[in-house]
């Protein structure tokens, strides 16, 4: 996935990849694979201030701003959440704050993973998206 591609193009790529997976098993195996492949966050970033706490699993999120683009790194203690986190990074990392703020993230619906977003309290995914947007907002205000 090229860093210069648009959010829409990135989402389309993911939807395409999932379309090849027939069963729920294949979909989840793919997500688990993504979770395992996402490089673990360096321990020095696993600080309280980077934690997005769900009541069952934890997500760590750090953001960087360079050349007008936002770059995210993240981790989770649960591998399925980590896989979904990896997808969110694929879509939202390396684009402008403006693009992040406008992202609808419909791909989660398309690939049948909306239930994970609905579980707001248990896994912190929705809170993670919010936090990504907060970062984007903060970086955008640096710009202006």
């Amino acid at each position: 996935m090229g860093e210069s591609s648009t959010i829409a193009a990135r989402e389309a790529e993911i939807i395409e990849a999932f379309a090849l997976l027939d069963s729920w098993e294949e979909k989840y195996e793919y997500i688990i694979e993504l979770g395992k492949k996402l490089p673990p966050l360096d321990e020095r970033y696993k600080l309280a201030e980077n934690i997005i706490k769900g009541c069952q699993s934890t997500v760590w999120l750090v953001a960087n701003y360079s050349d007008g683009k936002v770059f995210f790194k993240a981790d989770s203690d649960a591998v399925i959440v980590k896989g979904l986190v990896s997808l969110l990074i694929k879509v939202l990392s390396g684009v402008t704050p403006q693009e992040i703020l406008q992202a609808q993230l419909d791909f989660l619906q398309e690939i049948g993973m909306m239930t994970h977003l609905a579980q707001t309290r248990s896994n912190g995914l929705r809170a993670m998206i919010q936090q990504m947007k907060h970062y984007a907002l903060a970086f955008q205000s640096i710009n202006s």
Binding site: Y28, I32, Q56, S57, D77, V81, S122
Partner: peptide
């Protein structure tokens, strides 16, 4: 294995 991962796969 994180309990949540097990729970998600059992639910499926």
């Amino acid at each position: 294995i994180h309990p949540q991962d097990m729970g998600v796969l059992l639910d499926n």
